[in-house]
């Protein structure tokens, strides 16, 4: 049983755990220790996480090309353990965003973080990258922190029907009901479990409202410690089957390049 192992602090190495929400490299505003590929994989081993799909903080905050290259290097260093999201910028044209999908099989999707790029999620300047994502049918993970942002993700889900959109940090109180509405309305909208500080019962709430198939395990490692989210799901009052779906099965289903 998963809960028995969590209560003993043992690695969950007999189930498939796929983390859909990770980050490489440091955050300027505060300390993020061991946020390189080696540090991330070491923690994954301790907890029993098979694989993680991550984006680069450098790509989100400063220089997408440099950050995306950093992701590619991490993917190459840990094949099958680390997969990547690439991130566009709204401020200038990336010469060849498509190359990430034609040349690098370990790049699985696109990450958008409009807040730290000081714009909005459905900024048309993201459209060229999203059209490429739609063409390849890859998932798009979107940092979310408000009801308004969830509504903007619905706009994108309407426009790019071939993409699966993942609302990050879905259990935060202020917009959890908006996430429920979005998941119910759009087949191509999913939620992840990453959240810095959520109430007890957040997983049970999401599963009961949107159905377990829509809930994906995301931790925010190494921005945040994945040990936190492991317990939230591992000790949740849901069935063993549902835990296995959230931890990995659902992600394996919607990440089409795996």
């Amino acid at each position: 049983m998963i809960a028995d192992k969590v209560l003993k602090g043992l690695p969950l190495d007999d189930i498939d755990i796929f983390d859909v929400h990770g980050h490489l490299s440091g955050e300027p505003r505060f300390l993020t220790p061991d946020s390189d590929a080696d540090g991330i994989v070491k923690t994954m081993d301790q907890v029993g996480v098979n694989a993680i799909c991550l984006s680069s903080m450098t790509a989100l905050y400063a220089k997408p090309e440099k950050g995306n290259d950093e992701v590619i290097k991490a993917v190459q260093k840990y094949p099958g353990r680390i997969y990547g999201y690439v991130s566009p910028t709204p401020y200038y044209e990336d010469g060849d965003f498509e190359k990430y999908f034609t040349d690098h099989p370990g790049i699985l999707g696109v990450k958008l973080h409009a807040e730290c790029q000081q714009t909005v999620i459905d900024d048309p300047r993201y459209f060229p990258a999203l059209e490429i994502a739609d063409h390849y049918g890859v998932p798009v993970l979107i940092h979310t922190w408000s009801v308004d942002e969830v509504k903007r993700i619905m706009n994108l889900a309407e426009r790019y029907k071939n993409c699966n959109f993942i609302i990050a940090h879905s259990a935060m109180l202020v917009y959890r009901d908006a996430c429920v509405e979005a998941c119910k309305k759009y087949e191509n909208i999913f939620v992840d479990t990453a959240a810095s500080y959520t109430f007890e019962g957040a997983i049970e709430y999401m599963v009961s409202k949107v159905g377990v198939e829509k809930v994906l395990y995301g931790s925010d490692l190494a921005f945040y410690d994945c040990r936190h989210t492991i317990g939230k799901i591992g000790l949740a009052q849901i069935s063993e089957t549902d835990k296995i779906k959230i931890f990995g099965e659902n992600a394996r289903r919607i990440f089409n390049r795996l």
Partner: peptide, 16 residues
């Protein structure tokens, strides 16, 4: 930190 925090998450981070 209950009820705003999660006990299952908080215990887990110490255990692991």
């Amino acid at each position: 930190g209950m009820p705003n925090g999660s006990a299952t998450a908080a215990t887990s981070i110490v255990r692991y």
